[in-house]
Design a protein around this nucleic acid. Structure first.
Length: 199
DNA sequence: CAGAAGATCTGC
DNA sequence: CAGATCTTCTGC
């Protein structure tokens, strides 16, 4: 299982998002290793994207987005949820890929313990805030590197290639009308049990 | 400085 | 389908 290198993330977020589908996202957390196979992500493209937190320039919250690629950008929303992104492109571009859903493949027991009320396994990690909660990721991981030496990383999986046939691009979820909601910048494995129902 | 919206989820 | 819950940003 090889850790994806900096060069992988240094490209346009659209390219990175598409290629992250089927890859593993792993975290060596305090309770052990947890990991998912990514089945749904969205690209956010900084200053050219009204839906991006980086659209209007850097703020205190978005500092990490404007930094080097290969780091985790974690933000807090709706008063209770954390969402995780991977910073892409080159420094200053504020591009990132939002991790929206994955299929648990490592540390299933730890994942279930993080979401004890969930009875249907498919709902453990289907949704950006569900995914972070299941993996034990929150603001403490904001800015953490996914590159060599860190506790977070992505890796290609042997299933990556066969999953790729089912990838579709559709509009992103949850954006206000007119803020890029019509752009097909979400990538998912359509019909995958661990992806969202929509799309 | 106040107001509104927010890359959401859950339970009714 | 509405409530939870609070940070962040914008406009006055």
């Amino acid at each position: 299982m090889r850790r994806l290198p900096r060069a992988f993330y240094s490209r346009d977020a659209l390219e990175v998002a598409k290629e992250l589908i089927g890859c593993l996202f792993l975290f060596d957390g305090p309770e052990g290793r947890v990991g998912v196979r990514l089945v749904e992500v969205e690209a956010y493209r900084g200053s050219i994207d009204p839906g991006s937190h980086g659209y209007r320039g850097m703020t205190a919250r978005t500092t990490v987005m404007f930094g080097p690629p290969g780091r985790l950008y974690v933000y807090f929303t709706y008063g209770m949820h954390w969402c995780a992104n991977i910073v892409c492109g080159s420094p200053g571009r504020a591009a990132a890929v939002l991790l929206r859903a994955g299929e648990p493949v490592e540390g299933i027991e730890v994942i279930k313990a993080h979401r004890p009320a969930i009875r249907d396994d498919r709902l453990l990690t289907a949704g950006p805030a569900r995914l972070t909660q299941a993996m034990g990721i929150d603001g403490r991981q904001n800015g953490e590197s996914l590159l060599r030496g860190g506790v977070l990383w992505c890796a290609e999986d042997r299933l990556t290639e066969e999953s790729r046939e089912w990838i579709v691009a559709t509009r992103r979820i949850g954006l206000t009308l007119g803020k890029g909601d019509d752009l097909p910048w979400r990538f998912m494995i359509r019909g995958h049990p661990y992806a969202s129902r929509r799309g």
